[in-house]
């Protein structure tokens, strides 16, 4: 059993680019480190007090040209590295198009993952090789971080807000998944596996895991405990959202021609540019929908009144993810992005 790796596997397109950057910075570090380390020792030996055979004449103690040289050369290198790294950062964090989206909910001490077709996994994430993946993250309690070293990506799962990251798995295989933000007692046990499958196998996996027999009500109930096995939903994520929408009575007002109050048209919410009563303009994204449900008073669409009850404490993070998927689907946004 000789298992003694010194570098992590590299299994995503972005990861390859980040590795190259890593090794470039490492090379620069080794060059400068060696100059200073060996240089200082060499000088200290050569100019040791007992050595009178060296030339100590013209020992100046300031020289503007030298100072400028060792200020500006590192500065130029620094700027190049900064720009390169910023570009790769944008690749994994800036919004991109044409992705396969999974929702991940972190909670003490497990990861709960939901696929667009309704398949769900705990402490496991199954992904297709060769496709751009978007992971949308949120936490139900404290801050966690979703880290996949083989892909060189991670992102914090923060309570109350959605964070996203993008990457493209390339090599089928099984990789480590860690929580890297300290989250209490069992932080070190909040780990799992990321399984990358070739596209055709992934499709089979999806089919096998999507059609379950559990009732939607079960999905709409609270999330399972850490020990609960991953269950397949009956319906796609958006369909599950529709169930929740009905179960919570949203349709008493929304999408209801006989609504007692004047409500915005939810089929237009996703992706819309929304003017608020206080004059601000926001985008109809996950964060907006989430806040509109939990705390409607915070942002009121122009022309409407604060007549929606707040659902804070009545919807789980999981249901919120489903509701968002549903409202997204109303706007015709496919599950693979817009």
């Amino acid at each position: 059993m000789w298992n003694f790796p010194l570098v992590p596997p590299t299994a995503s397109k972005e990861g390859e680019a980040i590795s190259l950057l890593y090794w470039t910075i490492t090379t620069i570090a080794i060059v400068f480190g060696t100059i200073v380390l060996l240089g200082a020792i060499y000088l200290a030996v050569r100019y040791r007090a007992s050595n009178n055979a060296v030339d100590r004449s013209n020992a100046t103690d300031s020289d503007l040209r030298i100072e400028l040289a060792w200020t500006l050369i590192p500065l130029v290198i620094a700027m190049v590295m900064f720009g390169w790294a910023a570009k790769l950062y944008a690749d994994i964090y800036a919004p991109r198009e044409g992705y396969y989206e999974v929702f991940v909910i972190g909670k003490q001490w497990m990861w709960h993952c939901q696929h667009p077709n309704g398949a769900r996994e705990n402490n496991m994430l199954t992904l297709p090789a060769g496709r751009l993946v978007k992971v949308s993250l949120i936490s139900q309690d404290v801050i966690h971080a979703f880290s996949i070293p083989a892909f060189r990506v991670k992102r914090d799962a923060v309570p109350g807000r959605y964070n996203a990251m993008y990457f493209t798995p390339t090599k089928p295989g099984v990789y480590h998944l860690f929580c890297t933000e300290y989250c209490g007692t069992k932080h070190a046990e909040m780990i799992g596996k990321v399984v990358v499958l070739p596209e055709n196998e992934f499709q089979k996996w999806l089919e096998k895991n999507a059609p379950g027999a559990t009732a939607a009500a079960a999905t709409a109930a609270t999330t399972g405990s850490a020990a609960a096995p991953a269950t397949g939903g009956t319906l796609t994520l958006a369909q599950q959202g529709e169930q929740v929408f009905k179960a919570l009575g949203c349709n008493a007002c929304h999408l209801n021609p006989n609504s007692p109050v004047k409500v915005p048209d939810l089929t237009k919410t996703w992706g819309d540019t929304i003017k608020l009563t206080d004059g601000r303009v926001v985008k109809g994204d996950e964060a907006y929908i989430r806040e509109s449900i939990l705390n409607p008073a915070a942002k009121i669409r122009e022309g409407y009144q604060n007549l929606m009850p707040p659902y804070q404490g009545q919807v789980s993070e999981e249901q919120l993810v489903q509701l968002i998927a549903y409202i997204k689907s109303l706007a015709g946004a496919s599950n693979g992005g817009k």
Binding site: Y22, A29, Y93, R152
Partner: peptide
Amino acid sequence: LTGLHLAALATNVHLTDT
């Protein structure tokens, strides 16, 4: 010098909290 790996955005994402 290893602060540079952390100053760089993309490598930081991989290395932070490790």
